[in-house]
Design a protein around this nucleic acid. Structure first.
Lengths: 234, 234
DNA sequence: AGTTGGTGTGTAACATGTTAGATGTTATTG
DNA sequence: CAATAACATCTAACATGTTACACACCAACT
């Protein structure tokens, strides 16, 4: 018997081992965030397991992780549900998002190389095209990608993952809002202002613009609650 | 058969259902953060299960959660280890901590009532006593509690849990540092400066002071790596 | 001696069986 | 008829059995 300790031989945490629970997690998360599964809807582990052709174990593991993330609510011995929208939790998520992304953008301003700026502008160009085509889904994906790019440009290992996780609540709300109001033109203008500020090296302006950009969602949220109260909790 | 949907009848998420996996999680987390389990050490699920008198399932669940939190490293089909210290991850955790806590303190300044300020000062008083007694552990606990109090005072549901989770890496490092260097006097002074700034309603000063306070840890970290390189990864 | 390939072992991942408890329903009682 | 208690049912939680795979070890070959 040999005690194996972590050593250099390990394929250093890069093999993003795609276990079944990871796959199930990704599928369910996507389904929840995209509102394919509605807030409040029941999730039957056994059914999910059958549909995906796996046993209950990886499904349970995936759901536990989603519960940590606040995307599902588990009531012990009773049932599992897609998390409803809780205004106070969304408020906290917004706060965290603003805090992280404004801080990240300040670092990004310090570190942005011409190549990185070019990457931003390419994304903006594609956003413009998507906006012209009225392709909401595509525009939304590019929006998320841009925020990820800015996070990455801050040059901190794992920051994107953390930010993305904390953003999941908000991403879900935004998807729901997509069907009611789009603001694509305004959003695009805001993105352009942010990138310009970064290109100009103006950290304060970039942060301020980002903050205002993120804050936009608040008003629309109340609008959604009036139209679809069943999606909300408490 | 009746489809149960989440309703008001539920003991609304307050019964912090203490399942076994939660208990195991708490025990292991505490053991890791307190360095009772050293970075790099092997964790044998079966052994842990036997020691705690439970089956492998709740242990696995707890460890999965700890892996999400970055406190353990799971190598599929190979083994599970207490996470080693990775400078780049700690750097990211520091960044996140600064971002969240400076943002939180700005809100706290706006909302701090006399009662809340009194709570802060009571904590400081106990810190002073602990410092006089050279009671490192007690002082450290009060330190964490103060940061939690400030988070709570920001008035955002769940913020403390998020901040606490993102802080776990750093808490672990601080515990290890405790044995080498204490800085209790200086730390106490920094805490007092932060609270004074809050009491004065000076948000900028409070945030600046907090940032400087958190940044202190950086230097000591390199010191630790020289003394205990085996705790570090990469 | 260093490299390569086969083999054994131990572990996480996965599957499935069992238990406990929360809730809805029905029966019972005043 | 309302309140309450017994019951049925469904689900997550927990236990345990099985499989697949990563790594260590060793032998054979260059």
């Amino acid at each position: 018997m040999q005690l194996r300790s972590p050593s250099r031989n390990f394929k250093e945490q890069k093999v993003v081992s795609v276990t079944r629970k990871d796959q199930v997690y990704t599928i369910l998360r996507q389904a929840i965030i995209s509102s394919q599964l509605s807030p409040g809807e029941t999730i039957r582990k056994e059914l999910v397991a059958a549909q995906l052709g796996v046993s209950r174990t990886p499904v349970s593991d995936a759901i536990n992780r989603l519960a940590d993330e606040g995307l599902v609510e588990i009531y012990p011995q009773t049932g599992t549900f897609v998390a409803r929208l809780w205004l106070d939790k969304i408020e906290t998520a917004q706060f965290v998002r603003v805090a992280l992304e404004t801080a990240a953008i300040r670092r990004t301003v310090e570190r942005a190389t011409p190549e990185i700026i070019t990457g931003f502008r390419q994304n903006l160009e594609r956003q413009r095209k998507a906006a012209e085509k009225q392709d909401f889904e595509q525009f939304y994906e590019l929006d998320e990608a841009l925020h990820d790019l800015i996070c990455d440009a801050a040059g901190l290992v794992g920051l994107r993952e953390i930010a993305s996780k904390e953003r999941s609540q908000i991403d879900r709300v935004r998807r729901l809002l997509l069907h009611y109001e789009t603001r694509m033109i305004e959003t695009l203008a805001e993105h352009e202002a942010i990138i310009s500020a970064i290109a100009d090296g103006d950290a304060d302006k970039a942060a301020k613009t980002m903050e205002a950009h993120i804050a936009q969602m608040g008003k629309m949220l109340l609008h959604l609650r009036n139209k679809r109260p069943e999606l909300f909790g408490s």
